[in-house]
């Protein structure tokens, strides 16, 4: 009967028997472990996870930093373009209206 059930189970769900056997083996091994070791391992696992999370945050910050640096570099270009435009226009206006006395700021 047992052999028949086993045969049927293998047919309906191949691999199930192997999985059950594996679970039994894991339980047997777990029973041999020292609870203190398990607790320490668990604590280390949490510490590692926290470190990974911090690392991910750092990577995200660095990526944002790189974007920000590129934005600032582009701003340099915009500032130079605007400065050139404003100075050229002002010079043209000054040229049209005569020289400016810088000390008194008068034309």
């Amino acid at each position: 009967m047992r052999a028949l059930v086993g045969k049927l189970a293998r047919k309906l769900a191949p691999g199930t028997m192997e999985s059950l056997a594996y679970v039994r083996e894991v339980r047997q091994r777990a029973a041999l472990l020292d609870p203190a070791d398990v607790a320490q391992l668990h604590a280390e696992l949490i510490a590692v996870r926290e470190r990974v999370e911090r690392l991910e945050e750092t990577v995200a910050r660095l990526e944002d930093l790189e974007l920000s640096v590129n934005e600032h570099r582009r701003d340099v270009l915009r500032v130079a373009e605007l400065t050139d435009l404003v100075l050229t226009r002002l010079r043209a206006v000054e040229g049209a209206s005569g020289t400016v006395d810088r000390a008194t700021n008068k034309h």
Partner: peptide, 15 residues
């Protein structure tokens, strides 16, 4: 000594 000054000089050169 800065990219902005470098460009302003190049704009003047263009004119």
């Amino acid at each position: 000594t800065t990219p902005a000054d470098m460009m302003l000089e190049s704009f003047r050169l263009e004119r």
